[in-house]
């Protein structure tokens, strides 16, 4: 097991001077990522997926619980942790320093870690993300969105990490470019572990082998992608697959809204208000339920299965 999250909660407390009631962005989350496994984290906005991504690169500290990389708490690592896990961000316009050239941007992580033969490594990673040689010494602000995102991916690859966390890497790009980036991730995914965070069911199910459904700071289901697509266990999964974009918005089935905001601050299931199986019990979050399938297991948090 490469990365393991155990009972993670993350709360935001407001500013130093004006403390307020803690707001929990993640509530008691546990899951793990294996070597060379790609995991999709699927969640709508406000579900805590960005917080989860930032947690894995130590930009956010958990309020409760611990994160382990190779069995060791990630906050007990020094600078060498930053070599093992790197991140690709959402907005390519902001992801690269406009004063840097492509080459400098990719070289900087190597420079920071004092790695020799930088020239070869930079050439190798830039080629692997299909950046043509004539762009190598351009300033990063001269590139298009898709090219910038490729450079950002190259930068994440430069240190040859064990795990790449991609926080919505395609959502700021138009569809054709987004699919190119998606292909790139598919190509890369077996060289190291990958956490692919997205709100888009179609993109997410194309990249990952395992899918984690996140809503309102809670995990509702962890399944292999194939099984999830055939038959989602959680009613929210059913809702997601029912709401895939179709030619006409009038042909959509069911409600468009997943989570109601009022459920964000309570102890219940975040989906319950729009859930067809809403029950009095749902005001408390259900315990985990494990369903065995051929290759592995599926885990679901829903009162239906208890």
């Amino acid at each position: 097991m490469l990365l393991e999250l155990k009972n993670i909660s993350v709360a935001y407390f407001g500013s130093f001077l004006f403390k307020r009631k803690p707001f929990f962005a993640l509530k008691n989350i546990s899951f793990s990522v294996n070597y060379r496994e790609s995991v999709t984290i699927l969640g709508e906005s406000g579900s805590g997926k960005t917080t989860l991504g930032r947690l894995t690169v130590r930009l956010v500290k958990p309020t409760e619980g611990k994160v382990f990389l190779k069995g060791r708490n990630i906050f007990s690592y020094g600078k060498e942790y930053t070599r093992k896990v790197s991140m690709v961000f959402q907005n390519p316009r902001e992801a690269l320093n406009p004063r840097y050239s492509v080459w400098e941007a990719v070289e900087e992580p190597l420079l920071v870690h004092g790695i020799k033969n930088r020239k070869e490594i930079v050439e190798k990673v830039l080629t692997s993300v299909d950046i043509e040689e004539k762009l190598w010494f351009r300033k990063t602000y001269q590139l298009s969105g898709g090219q910038k995102q490729r450079v950002a991916i190259a930068r994440a690859l430069a240190l040859n990490p064990l795990l790449i966390v991609a926080d919505e890497p395609t959502s700021a790009l138009d569809l054709s470019v987004a699919y190119e980036i998606l292909e790139l991730f598919k190509k890369l995914k077996h060289k190291q572990s990958l956490i692919f965070i997205t709100h888009d069911v179609r993109m997410g199910t194309k990249v990952g082998e395992k899918i984690i459904i996140l809503l309102g700071g809670r995990i509702l289901e962890i399944s292999p992608v194939k099984e999830f697509l055939e038959k989602p266990l959680h009613p929210y999964g059913v809702f997601l697959l029912n709401n895939l974009p179709v030619e006409s918005p009038y042909k959509r089935k069911g409600n468009l809204k997943g989570m109601e905001l009022e459920t964000l601050r309570d102890e219940g299931c975040p989906f319950r208000i729009n859930c067809p199986y809403n029950h009095e019990k749902c005001k408390l979050f259900p315990p985990e339920r494990i369903v065995k399938v051929e290759n592995g297991e599926r885990r679901v948090w829903c009162w239906i299965y208890i």
């Binding site: 130590r58 930009l59 961000f89 690269l96």
Partner: peptide, 26 residues
């Protein structure tokens, strides 16, 4: 909170480097 500053943190750049190479020049 710009992403290239966050990215610099994730690959281990020092605070000094972040301020003088990523923030102030811009």
């Amino acid at each position: 909170s710009y992403e290239y500053v966050l990215a610099a943190k994730t690959y281990g750049a020092s605070t000094f480097r972040i301020i003088f190479k990523h923030i102030l020049p811009n």
